[in-house]
Amino acid sequence: MRHFTIFASRNDTGDIPGLIAEVFADGYKIDGNSGEYVIQPRKWFNKNKMVIRVASEDTDPDYFANNIPGMMGFYDRIPFEDEQLKRLVLTQISVINTMLAIETDKDYDEAYLTLFQGLLRGVDGIGFIPDGTLADYDGRVIVHPDGRSGNAEFRPRACTRKIRGEEQVSAEGEQRKQETIAYLQSRNIPYIEGLPQLPPLADLHFKPREEIARRAVALLLVIQYACYILQDEGVEQSRQFVTEMLDKYGVTNALTENEADLLQQEEPEHQDAVNISWQYEAYWVLIWALGLVESLEFPNQTCDCDFAIQAVSSCDSFEEFLGKTSPRRPEEILDEADRNYRLHWACVNSRIKGESAPAGMNESIVMERRRALFWLIGSEGEEWDHISLDT
C-alpha cells in the first residue's frame, strides 16, 4: 500500500511541523511549506519518497465537510461484532478536525509503518489504512474491515474545540434526537445513530429578537446586491442603492465580514455573489424565527423570494419591521436545528456516494437553513460567516 492517513482531534496544528522533523530526523531530508512536506530518504538504495499533507478544519474546511460524513457512513455500514466499539468509533470520527495524509511513491514497508506510528502517537490520532482497517495511536488495530474487533483498548479522544463528550449528553438532547430520527424514518431518509446530540436549551445562547431582525434586514439587502451582480446590472448604481438602504434601516453594522467585503469589492467576485445569493434560504429561516413565515416546509423547494423581499420593503423603518415580528419559542427553533443537522448529514452522505439527495431535498437549501438555525441557537459562539457546517 502507498497511502496511510492519520486523523485526530486537536486544538491546533502548530506543533506538527516539529513532530514531523523529530520523527524523520534520522536519515531523511524534509522540504515543505504551507502544510505539505516532501520527505526524501538519504540512503542510496531507498528511493521511496513520501509526501505528507497536513490539513485542519481551519485550513481546509471543505475537505472535512465533504469527507468526514462519508467516513462516518462507511463505518456505520460495517457490521461490527461489538456494537459498543462501533459507537466509540463513530464518536471519534465525529470530532475529527485534523488530518495527516501520507502518500509514498512505492508500497511502504514495516520500517515506514513504524515511522507513521510515531506520528500517530505524536498527534494522539487514529490511523486509516485504505482497506478500511483503523489503528489506534499505539498502532494496535481498533477494527478490521469486516467488523472484527482488534486488540486496541480504544477510547475516543477529543480536543476542547470539538468535544461533544458526556457533559453534552442530556435526556433532553436524546429525546430531541430520537424525535428527529422518527421524522426521518417516516420519510425514508437515511440517518446514523452516531451523529451527536445538540446541546440542551440551558447550554445555548439564543439570539435576541432585535439582533435577529437586524441580521435579517442586513442580509436581505446584501443578497439583493449579490443578485444585481449576477444579473449584470450596474454595480456602482446597485452598490449605492443598497448602501442607502442599509443606512435607512440603520443596519450597516449588522453586516458580516464577507458581506461588507462584497460591497467594497471594486469588481465583485462572481462566486462571492453566488454564495451570498443562496443565503436567501438562511434569511427565510430568520424571518420564520421572527414569526413572519408560518412554517418551514420540507427543503425541496426554494423560498418565496417575492414574499421575502416584501417582508422588509413594506416597512419604512427598522422599527416598523421590528414591530411586525413575534419571535418563536427557543424550543421550536432548537427542534428545527436538530432536524436540519440530521437532514444535512443525509444530503452529504448521498453526495459522497454519488447519489441524489434523499426525498428530493436540495442540499444547498438544507445547508443555508442550518447556517441560520445554528446561528440563532448560538452554537459554539460562532459568528455567521464561520458557522461550522460539518456533519
Rank of each mutant, 00 (worst) to 15 (best):
I333Q: 08
T302V: 14
R176A: 04
V366E: 11
V89W: 04
S364I: 08
C159L: 05
E193F: 07
L134H: 04
D385S: 07
E331P: 02
I126P: 02
V38Q: 12
I333D: 02
I387G: 03
W288S: 11
D390I: 08
V312Y: 11
H3R: 15
G360H: 12
P199F: 06
W384P: 01
S170I: 02
G165T: 06
E81T: 12
R42I: 09
P327C: 09
E297L: 07
L263P: 01
V274H: 10
A273L: 07
I30S: 09
S170W: 09
E380G: 00
P299S: 09
D306Q: 14
A308R: 07
L201Q: 12
Y225V: 06
S356T: 14
D385Y: 11
A337E: 06
C303K: 06
Y112T: 13
E320W: 05
T325H: 05
L322F: 09
G323F: 00
I30M: 08
W288M: 09
D26M: 05
F374C: 03
Y280G: 07
S34T: 03
P330Y: 00
E211Y: 10
G122T: 05
D136I: 02
R370D: 09
D338N: 06
E281M: 09
V169K: 15
E281Q: 14
L246R: 04
E83G: 01
N46P: 10
I16C: 06
E320K: 12
G194W: 11
A182M: 09
F80A: 00
N46S: 07
K29N: 13
V235K: 05
I192R: 03
L204I: 04
L100V: 07
K324A: 11
E257G: 15
H344A: 13
T133S: 15
A182P: 02
T325G: 08
S34M: 13
S356M: 12
P156D: 06
V95E: 09
